[in-house]
Each structure stands twice: as structure tokens, then as C-alpha cells.
Design a protein around this nucleic acid. Structure first.
Length: 224
DNA sequence: AACCGTTCCAACCGCAAACGG
DNA sequence: CCCGTTTGCGGTTGGAACGGT
């Protein structure tokens, strides 16, 4: 093949590849392109099919369950994306890798402190101004899959200045606070949070972690 | 409106593993 | 075994889209 096309796939190319595979199945990636009338390498065709055109792909944002699975699997397997993908039907290794690098890397592991955003949302700035009470550090969670204790710093969920720690007995109560002032900040750990966190029982604790993940995935205005 | 910096993801590359003659 | 070819994996990047000024 003299000319090999690179870059983004056109809809016509996608159709050629899909039509060919539907008709003849996958038999040899390196030979397939010339039979399918594509000026692409077999490698490019395989990647396009596996990561984008395959009919069994899920698409769309990761659910909370999927996110938790990625975190859990990453903590046990490391960057073995293909192995992690086996636990998430409809998701590709590439997709999981991208998702991890763009959304989770700063939450898992030890680099939380090193990814300070260059710009903060207005809501975060406002929150800082009113000296909000930190009530929920995402650190030292009872759930090992979300164990941030290795981190040299922590992420906080913070609430409005009048929020009392003793009110935090259920996720509903937490949710109630979200509309106004909840923000997530990164910060160095200090002594104020750990003691205030002690009286929360494990179920509330893990609920907060779950809630935080949900919030993180849903909120546009949240900066990590 | 125009510019600029950031985010995100599709697609690339290099390398390793698997395959098969 | 050896060696060439094919397939699979993980790191990296180009550029479109987005958001802020």
C-alpha cells in the first residue's frame, strides 16, 4: 500500500470497516484494509473497531459503580488497563485509561496536592472567603478501595460555615447542603479534620465517600 | 468578538507477546 | 529453537471543543 491515511476516521471509512467486518468477520487485521478498500494500516483498523465501532460498546459517562470498579481495580492491578477493562463490559482499555487520566488520577494515589487547578470556580473562591468548616476529608476511609491514606495531602468536602458536624448523620443531610456552598478543595491535611471526623460511624463515612464520588461526577462547578 | 489557555479523547507510536511456518 | 508476521498493550500526543478574559 503506497499511501496510508492517518488521523481521524471519516464516516465513509467507518462504514467501509463496519460493512466489511459484518460481512467477512475479522480474519486478519493486516490484510483486511486492502480488501475493505481502506487506505489504513491494519493496526489503525483494529484500533478503530475495538475502541469505537464495536457494537457492544457502552459509550456515555461512567456510572458510579463503574468508577468505583476502576478505582478498586487500579489499586489492585495498577495500570493494567486491559485487565481492568475485562471487569467493565462495554468499556475499552483505552477508554478506561483516558477516564483514569482525566478524572481519577488526581483522586487516587499520591499526587492530589500536585494538581491544583490554575483557575478556580467562583463558587470555590466564595467558599474560601467565608472560612468554611471542613467536615469531610477524603482520607483514611474505611473502604480500602478508596484509601487515600497514602496521599501526602487530602481532598475535602466542605460545607457552609454554619454546618454542624453533628448534623451529618446521613447522605440526605449532606445532599441537603449541596445546593448552596458545597465545594471540593485540595489542601494539606491538618489537625482540625481528623478529630472532627472520628465520631462518624463507618456507614456514614463510606456513604460520604460514595456521595462525594457521585458529586464529583455530576457537578460542573466542582474543582478538584 | 477575538484571543488564549485548558480539558479531553481519538488515534498514534513503540514495544512486547503470541503465533505459526 | 529461530525468525518473520500479527496482535495486543500502555504511554503519549494532536487537535477539537470549551471556558475564561
Amino acid at each position: 500500500m503506497d499511501y496510508v491515511k492517518k488521523g481521524a476516521w471519516s464516516p465513509e471509512e467507518d462504514k467501509k470497516l463496519i460493512d466489511y467486518i459484518m460481512k467477512y468477520r475479522i480474519w486478519n487485521w493486516s490484510q483486511m484494509p486492502k480488501f475493505a478498500g481502506l487506505s489504513r494500516t491494519g493496526k489503525s483498523c483494529r484500533l478503530r473497531w475495538v475502541n469505537y465501532l464495536r457494537p457492544d460498546l457502552k459509550r456515555g459517562p461512567f456510572s458510579l459503580e463503574e468508577t468505583q470498579t476502576v478505582i478498586r481495580m487500579y489499586e489492585s492491578l495498577g495500570n493494567r488497563w486491559a485487565a481492568i477493562a475485562k471487569e467493565l463490559p462495554g468499556r475499552t482499555d483505552n477508554e478506561i485509561k483516558n477516564f483514569y487520566h482525566t478524572h481519577l488520577k488526581k483522586l487516587v494515589g499520591t499526587k492530589v496536592n500536585q494538581v491544583k487547578p490554575k483557575t478556580r470556580s467562583k463558587k470555590v473562591e466564595k467558599a474560601k472567603q467565608i472560612e468554611m468548616k471542613i467536615i469531610c476529608p477524603i482520607q483514611g476511609t474505611p473502604d480500602q478501595s478508596l484509601d487515600f491514606t497514602k496521599s501526602s495531602s487530602s481532598s475535602y468536602i466542605t460545607f457552609d460555615e454554619n454546618q454542624d458536624m453533628n448534623d451529618v448523620t446521613s447522605v440526605d443531610n449532606i445532599n441537603h447542603q449541596v445546593d448552596e456552598n458545597i465545594v471540593i478543595l485540595e489542601s494539606n491535611p491538618d489537625s482540625t479534620w481528623s478529630s472532627s471526623f472520628d465520631h462518624l460511624d463507618e456507614s456514614v463515612h463510606s456513604s460520604i465517600v460514595d456521595f462525594w464520588l457521585e458529586l464529583y461526577m455530576a457537578a460542573d462547578d466542582v474543582k478538584i
